[in-house]
């Protein structure tokens, strides 16, 4: 493990990079299009379509909750 000038190890630097608000936002934001992409290829009224709809609503809640992360 190498340490930077202020003593952080590679692992600590990696954890810090992965925890950055913008890094965390990438899957939160990009994941919102997944149900739409998968939904375009699923049949109408089938179980997969319903599951994708529920996933989409979950992602709406996730993105909305993450947007409120500025409040403590």
């Amino acid at each position: 493990m190498t340490a930077d000038p202020i003593g952080r190890t590679t692992g600590a630097r990696l954890r810090r990079a992965l925890s950055h608000p913008l890094t965390v936002a990438v899957p939160v934001v990009a994941g919102a299009v997944v149900p739409a992409v998968l939904g375009a290829t699923s049949g109408t009224g089938d179980v997969a379509g319903t599951a994708l709809a529920l996933l989409a609503f979950a992602w709406a809640g996730l993105a909305a909750g993450y947007a409120n992360s500025g409040s403590t």
């Binding site: 919102a32 609503f57 947007a67």
Partner: peptide, 12 residues
């Protein structure tokens, strides 16, 4: 996050 929320709601 606003675009993601609106897109996900619309998709759902």
């Amino acid at each position: 996050t606003a675009l993601a929320t609106v897109a996900a709601l619309g998709t759902g």
